[in-house]
């Protein structure tokens, strides 16, 4: 080995370490900046910031609860719709479809993930919102109107529309992860079930049992996506900081309020309120994503472990 080679390698190594360290520095800097800038509202409202339900920037009253509520409820709607759909697609792709059908469908699902958020938003405004106002809303009110969830006026813009748009946006990622964990379930598990006289459905149940924690991981990952989804939701959710039992009423999410209000938040306390919500969203999605990664990893490990 020539000496220059060794020097070259150590320079190379150092450069790579610097690159890798950059990520850690950026994350640390983001947290530090957000904590520092949310000090005014933390001082002013303390924990009450998260439980306060009034949001009146003109009177310097900042309660984040409507946004937290909107974020959680719209994400739950998204998951309730997206998880069965994704599971169905993934099971079809892995367990049923012959390769020549599975490949184009998988490709289209991946394509769905590549559509820009704002395009989903446009589609939401011009297609989904009228559809909900004219068809889905009246249908739900006719048959399930006794449930408070489906009462209220129908504008087409609101919590439900936001949730449905989110569902479409998280379906590709959940499908892709579920498909991956189903694929690592050993063929031996399927054959064991089949050899005992299991039907295709019973065999699939065994496969799902093998992949359970990975599927949980996929769901949590979808939750992480839904929590942080901004543009499309901002366009269809109505952007009104209220807590209403009705899914047809306009709502607001943390991500949306950040995107929509930064420009006008000139006041120091207003800015601090927005940044503190950003911090909350950051921490929650950070934890949710870490949990998802952990769950998915566990399946991969167990499958290769024996």
């Amino acid at each position: 080995m020539s000496k220059t080679g060794t020097i070259g390698d150590s320079v190379f190594r150092t450069i790579l370490i610097i690159f890798a360290a950059t990520i850690l520095v950026i994350v640390a800097a983001m947290i530090a900046m957000m904590v520092q800038n949310s000090i005014p509202t933390i001082r002013e409202f303390g924990f009450g910031f998260l439980t306060g339900s009034r949001w009146l920037p003109a009177s310097d009253i900042y309660g984040a609860l409507p946004f937290i509520y909107g974020t959680i409820v719209s994400s739950l709607i998204a998951l309730i719709l997206a998880v069965p759909l994704s599971l169905g697609i993934a099971i079809f792709l892995v367990e049923q479809a012959p390769a020549r059908i599975a490949r184009p469908i998988a490709f289209m699902v991946e394509l769905l993930a590549a559509i820009p958020s704002v395009v989903y938003g446009l589609w939401g405004i011009f297609v989904l919102a009228p559809f909900i106002r004219v068809y889905l809303g009246p249908f739900l009110q006719n048959y399930f109107g006794f449930i408070p969830l489906f009462q209220g006026r129908l504008t087409g813009i609101g919590m439900l529309t936001g949730g449905i748009i989110m569902a479409l946006m998280v379906t590709p990622i959940v499908t892709a992860v579920v498909r991956d964990v189903l694929e690592v379930v050993p063929t031996a598990q399927r054959e064991a079930a089949l050899a005992l006289g299991a039907t295709k459905w019973e065999t699939t149940v065994i496969v799902l049992g093998n992949a359970a924690s990975g599927i949980a991981g996929a769901v949590v990952l979808g939750l992480g996506r839904a929590l942080g989804e901004t543009m499309a939701v901002t366009m269809v959710i109505g952007n009104s900081p209220q807590i209403s039992a009705s899914l047809f009423e306009p709502a607001y999410t943390i991500a949306s309020v950040l995107a929509a209000n930064f420009a006008e938040a000139t006041d120091k306390l207003y800015m601090s309120a927005l940044i503190e919500m950003g911090l909350v969203l950051f921490l929650v999605t950070f934890i949710v994503n870490a949990l998802a990664k952990l769950l998915v990893l566990r399946v991969a490990k167990r499958q290769t472990g024996h």
């Binding site: 079930a193 050899a195 006289g197 093998n210």
Partner: peptide, 19 residues
């Protein structure tokens, strides 16, 4: 399905279910 119930199989690598 009935055939496979009547003709059981034991595989090369043991493959118990995660149960």
């Amino acid at each position: 399905v009935a055939l496979r119930r009547k003709v059981g199989m034991v595989f090369q690598k043991s493959n118990p279910f995660p149960k």
